[in-house]
Every structure is written in C-alpha cells, then in structure tokens.
Design a protein around this nucleic acid. Sequence first.
DNA 1: CCATGAACCTGGTCGC
DNA 2: TGCGACCAGGTTCATG
Length: 275
Amino acid sequence: MPELPEVQTVVNHIRGDLVGKNIVGIIPLWGKSLHNFKPNDLSIKNKKNRILDVRRRAKFIIIDLGDFIIAVHLRMTGKLYIQKGSSIPKYARAIIKLENSKDLIFDDIRKFGRIYLYKNLTEIDSKHGPEPLGKEFTHEWLYDNLKKKNRNLKALLLDQSFIAGLGNIYVDEILWESGIHPNSISSTISKTKVSLLHNSIQNILKKAINNHGTTFMSFTFLNGRSGNYSNELKIFGKQGEPCKTCGELIKKIKVAGRGTHICSTCQKKYRPGKK
DNA sequence: CCATGAACCTGGTCGC
DNA sequence: TGCGACCAGGTTCATG
C-alpha cells in the first residue's frame, strides 16, 4: 500500500489518538513483526512509555517515546490503526497496548511489514536520502545528484538511499507528468527536464497527501476509509487506455523489476550520446 | 558501480 | 467451478 503520501496519511490519522497516551505493552502475533527487539525491551521496569509525537520519516511511521522510538514500516500490505470493535482482526500481526485506550493494531496480510525499536532516527537517516518535500531537496540538489550516477532513472528514484519515500505508483505518475522515460540514464537528463521532474515530484506528492493517498482494488486502510488519489492517477494501472495528453495507448513494461506504465510518445528516453 | 533475480508472504485475478 | 500461472503500492541479499 504505502508510499510517502499513504504513510503521511496514516500518521495524520492516528497522531491525535496517540500523542499523550502511554504504551503499556506490545504483543507480537507473528514473531518476525518485531524486527530487532522483544516485548520486554519495551517495558522497562515501571517506567511509562509516553508517546510524545507521531511523525513520518521516509516510509516509516515514527512513534516518539523520548528515550527511544518505535518505527513501523508497512511494506506492501501493512496497516496501522486504532482497534475498532473488540475482536482481533484476521491479519493482525502485533498489538500495541495503550493505557486507557483501544489498542493500536499492526495489521499485515503479507507479513512483510516490520516494527523496529531504535534509540533515535540515526539508523534510519543513515540509510535514506532527503525528504522530497524537505528544504534540502532543491532543483540543484536533484540535478547535481542525478549527474553523479549512471543509473536507470526509475531504479534510482525508487532507491530510498537516494531519495526517500517514492514508490512504484508515484514514480510512474511523476515520470509521465514530466515527460521522461523511466529507462533514461540519470546523468544524461537535461537541466530543464530535471527542473520539470523536481516540480512533478513535489506537486504530485503534495496533491496525493491532500487527497489522503491512493487506494485501489477496494484495498482500504484507515479503518475502512480510503484515499481519493486513485481518481487522479494518469498512467498507473491505465495500460490499454489512451494517454490523456496525446491519445497514444498506454503500455505496461518492466523496468527495474517493477511493472511500469508509460506513454512512449510523451516520455522521452535520455541516454548517453543522445539529447 | 550497476543490474538482475530470488526471497520474504498471502490473496486476488485472469485464462483455460 | 476449478486450477494453475501470474501479479501485487517494498526491501534486502546474492550473484555476475
């Protein structure tokens, strides 16, 4: 499910219910869900684990407890929400018990999602590039850093150590809007095009956040509430349909091992020796 | 340095 | 209706 806008949506949705509450325990229902700690590591003596803040870094949901953080990564099918009724959901993989509150449920059909316990953000920061909506991410930064690599463009944009938060849906949307073929080589893209690419990254992410992210195929999150950005998608999942700009039929190909949607008329391929 | 494919998992969809 | 093949919004690791 989640790329940056979806993770941000989850954070926005649960933050109000969590900040100020105390975590009194965590119960794994699928052992591997707790990646680097045991439930006891959390319940340090009688000390209460008060949630000071809930925020996002890259695709992680960060639950800030002051002395340490709980970082939740939803991977493909994870969800994080306050429990509704009293029965444990079918795909619940961990339960975070809150004092005087309904539990926080970590739900994940495919069991890829993970919960981490860290002292602070250092570990996560060290493996991630800048936030695309942060002030470090400028036109110049993008141009300079694309230049430094000779990578397949889509693969590079999906690489979290290069830039954090982008995933398969939004990369396809971004590359279509900026008119660049995903199989371009990063170092060969013109400065003007990189500028368009930068604008698309920020505009599409912001718009998706405003629309509470993308959900499709009745795959909802947020306790059944779903995001509306699916209505805004221009190319992802639109194979066989006409391109909204030129009418050419949209194709689905494989790039960097991922299903990739392109308009071969509108998206120019930048490669060494060409312009 | 870079690309590729497998692995981790379960469920939905499509074609026959 | 059944069944197998294939696909899935992510990440990591081994291999060439």
